[in-house]
């Protein structure tokens, strides 16, 4: 455990060193929040609510969803690169579990960006856009818990893409494909409750809404009461299932490394 902790800390230090990436990333996010604000304000022109959601709740949803969707990527690309250039064989000789190491590095990056990027932007959004506080006092901590599970699900899904690099050469295409699916079905663009009915049904059978929609909807009150606990339970089920799939794929992939040399 200790070594993964150290790996994570080293990643935090590394990320903190790249100031130009930090400022550019923050600027990008602020610009995106700005577009979202202008767009939804225009949507609510002369309108009090859409499907029962008032403007302030909608803005709260889309801003938080945009911020949270920044975390839905993981280290799949890192892994894919290492597979592509053959480093994976070297990594496998080192005294740690490569998957755990990558997760530790990823956590490091995510912790850095939540402190330096997300938190300030949330505060700015409270002040300038007037986003709401959590729906109920209890929804606050539950949505944070749900968001953490969601981030783990996103990171694990990303890992699948990375492992596929053992079989597929052109991982960039798969990544874009994943981005497209995620952007839409995670609820990063708008609440899934606005989807047409058939699409809402499809979405409940997919893991993607656990990544963004569930935590943010708990916060804004689209999901209430005992539905909250059910949704979090579903998130946990998905996490376990995806983790199982990854371990299975990984063991196939390792067999491939040992036979073909990566």
């Amino acid at each position: 455990m200790r070594k993964y902790w150290e790996l994570m800390k080293s990643q935090i230090k590394l990320d903190s060193a790249y100031t130009i990436w930090y400022w550019s990333g923050t600027a990008s996010t602020i610009l995106r929040v700005f577009v979202i604000y202008a767009f939804w304000s225009a949507v609510y022109d002369n309108r009090v609510e859409i499907t029962g959601i008032p403007l302030s709740t909608m803005l709260t949803y889309v801003v938080l969803a945009t911020l949270l969707s920044n975390y839905s990527a993981g280290v799949g690309y890192e892994l894919a690169n290492r597979v592509r250039n053959g480093e994976v064989a070297i990594e496998l000789m080192r005294p740690y579990d490569l998957m755990h190491k990558l997760v530790a590095l990823d956590l490091g990056t995510k912790i850095t960006s939540s402190v330096r990027n997300t938190l300030p932007i949330i505060i700015l959004s409270f002040i300038f856009i007037g986003i709401n506080l959590p729906h109920t006092w209890f929804a606050g901590p539950l949505s944070i818990l749900s968001a953490i599970i969601g981030v783990f699900i996103g990171a694990q899904l990303d890992m699948i893409i990375g492992i596929l690099a053992f079989w597929v050469f052109y991982i960039w295409g798969l990544r874009i494909l994943r981005n497209a699916i995620l952007l839409f079905f995670s609820g990063a663009l708008l609440p899934i409750s606005l989807f047409p009915d058939w699409l809402q049904t499809v979405s409940t059978f997919l893991p993607f809404q656990s990544i963004v929609y569930v935590p943010v909807a708990i916060y804004t009150g689209q999901i209430t009461g005992s539905d909250i606990y059910f949704s979090i339970l579903m998130q946990l089920v998905w996490l376990v299932v995806i983790f199982g799939i990854i371990r299975l794929l990984w063991s196939f992939a390792l067999r491939r490394v040992t036979i073909f040399g990566g």
Partner: peptide, 28 residues
């Protein structure tokens, strides 16, 4: 194959933005 995956992916990701606007216009 990779080439086709790439084209399809880019096609889809552009499609999501359009779909997003369409859903919004369902309500306004």
């Amino acid at each position: 194959i990779d080439f086709l995956i790439g084209i399809l992916s880019v096609f889809l990701i552009q499609g999501t933005s359009i779909f997003f606007v369409a859903i919004v216009f369902d309500h306004i």
